[in-house]
Design a binder for these strands. Structure first.
Length: 106
DNA sequence: CGGTTGACTGTTT
DNA sequence: TAAACAGCCAACC
């Protein structure tokens, strides 16, 4: 049987997201390139379909401007809290300095 | 099968 | 610096 969890594309995205280290953030674009996905929007779509309670560090994925993408106050707040909890310090507007916290693949 | 949607991004105002 | 626009394409209905 073929389930969504077996989709190779989804597996690659999951693997890349899982490789982002604690205390750092990666952009949807970075993940898209690393996972060989054509459209960065698909990375967001993949995370959106994650089951609740997933062990993936989905909160470490932000947009190209270092902001948490719009998807509702509650979810945005949770993501920011998770990041702060692991040492990421957003500026007054809630933006994250990618020069400082951006993930640099080795 | 076709139109709509969207956790995006680079370019242009 | 910020807002508007255009291109993108799989998932969904």
């Amino acid at each position: 049987m073929a389930s969504a969890a077996d989709d190779p594309r989804l597996q690659r995205i999951h693997a890349v997201v899982d490789s982002v280290p604690r205390g750092r953030v990666a952009t949807y674009g970075q993940v898209a390139v690393a996972a060989h996905v054509s459209n960065p929007r698909h990375v967001g779509a993949a995370l959106r379909r994650l089951p609740p309670g997933s062990s993936l560090p989905w909160h470490r994925i932000v947009n190209a401007r270092g902001e948490i993408s719009r998807r509702g106050p509650a979810a945005e707040r949770e993501q920011l809290e998770r990041l702060v909890a692991e040492g990421v310090e957003p500026d007054a507007r809630g933006r994250i300095d990618l020069e400082r916290y951006g993930w640099r693949p080795d």
